[in-house]
Write a protein that binds this DNA or RNA. Structure first.
Lengths: 249, 249
DNA sequence: GTTAACCGTGCAGAAACGTGCAACTTCGTG
DNA sequence: CACGAAGTTGCACGTTTCTGCACGGTTAAC
């Protein structure tokens, strides 16, 4: 293990877990804690993280340059994204839908893991390219102005040539009665087509989507493997949903 | 084992393992570590990797040449882009290749005109979406790290379903002898496939491309309808080119 | 206030590095 | 064919960098 690589690994852990525990990483990598501490010291000097007793934490958003802060999703979405990223097995192929939560996911994908990311969203594709070394496949098609996502017959056709393990689905409404819904008819069809080509579909359920309903149905609740939600949010609607589909928090 | 061959091997390892350990490769290839170190030094000078203690690592995504933030077009490219945009008839369907010049074009496309823009570049797609009301079609496929453009079999297939009036082709070399060339083999194939589906192809000839040659041929000069160049640049090579293909300035 | 875990510093051995040099190959030229 | 120039390769040497350990100080938790 090269020392520079170890630092990458540390940043990767920080990205994914939101913290670093020196002792644990030392055991994981089979090096002494001293080396880890030295790395952390240097990374802290470089402004990549803040050291704390026992390990390190990300730099608090308030201390970051403004341009970075402006592109951050809300904290709740960040938590959903972090939870969702945890569910990606190493070496797998995942589809990331368009949306702010998937954009947040793109920024916190594991660094080293051998991943393939498929997405119909140019913004997500660029974010993944910037933050990881994953293979990236973009689904082509007409770009919908509504959600900046590829759709239409071209996309549907392209989707038929793909398959993936996991689909992280973004919708605008998650409701026990109306199921999963979104605001654009074409988008709904594309999402369905993608889901049909993936082994499992997980819905990203950031705070404001729970209990909301949009115009066009995407999928029945029963067709998804789970809803990923913010671990800190409690909502009676969630309990209702939990009776029908696994809620991952 | 030739040194060039060894360098290819090194880049292969880097691509596959995400790292190079000098000692290990030296043993594998049966050469001294000194030679490996020398190769790594040269590859690092050429910008193909970053050296670290013990070996080498890939260039971090944030530092790559195609990074959108740092890729502000030069004034010369802006003039080429402006000239190129003038050549777009209202109501037409155009393909914008990837690259800084096409990115500049995307930002200065006419607002009202009823346009359809097709592109294999997520960055260009987003720029067009931000600056115009054009219909946008993305060509999907594997995203090449080299130029952040969709390519591979998926892109080739997607291209077959499209057709357009005008293709604004970006290359890295425009030379009277070697014709139009680019630095990535896959990219070259995708560009050819697109050109075959378009009525006319125009090459974007920003200053530094004129007289330059890259590794992989894209098209013969005779196959394009013209080269768009900076009106303010004069270059003897341009006169040579003008004898074979229209030069639009 | 006590205890255990964590931290910084100094140190020594090991590993990797850069440089200069000599032996060797390759290529073009007379 | 002989010759020399240019490039490549491996080795030797001194230097730099990394790593783990020991020691004493500091911090957090009970």
């Amino acid at each position: 293990m090269l020392s520079a690589q170890r630092k990458d690994h540390l940043l990767g852990i920080l990205h994914q877990d939101g913290r670093i525990i020196a002792k644990q990483v030392a055991v994981d990598l089979g090096v002494s804690e001293d080396s880890i501490r030295r790395d952390l010291r240097e990374l802290a000097d470089a402004g990549e993280l803040v050291r704390v007793y026992g390990g390190a934490l990300p730099i608090p958003p308030a201390d970051r340059p403004v341009d970075e802060r402006s592109s951050l999703a809300t904290e709740s979405k960040e938590r959903v994204a972090r939870r969702a990223v945890e569910l990606i097995p190493p070496g797998s192929t995942v589809v990331l839908d368009a949306g702010t939560t998937t954009l947040a996911m793109a920024r916190m994908l594991p660094h080293g893991a051998d991943l393939t990311v498929i997405t119909p969203s140019p913004a997500v594709a660029l974010a993944v390219a910037e933050h990881t070394e994953a293979r990236i496949v973009i689904i082509g098609g007409e770009l919908s102005r509504f959600s900046m996502v590829a759709g239409g017959p071209l996309a549907t056709e392209a989707v038929q040539h793909l398959s993936a393990d996991l689909f992280f689905l973004g919708v605008t409404g998650i409701d026990p009665v109306h199921g999963l819904t979104t605001g654009d008819l074409g988008d709904a069809a594309t999402k369905r087509a993608i889901a049909a080509r993936c082994t499992q579909t997980l819905v990203l359920g950031s705070e404001e989507k729970i209990g909301a309903t949009s115009r066009y149905p995407v999928l029945d609740l029963e067709r998804v493997a789970g809803i990923v939600v913010d671990p800190l949010v409690t909502d009676p609607v969630l309990d209702e949903l939990a009776a029908r589909v696994p809620v991952l928090r």
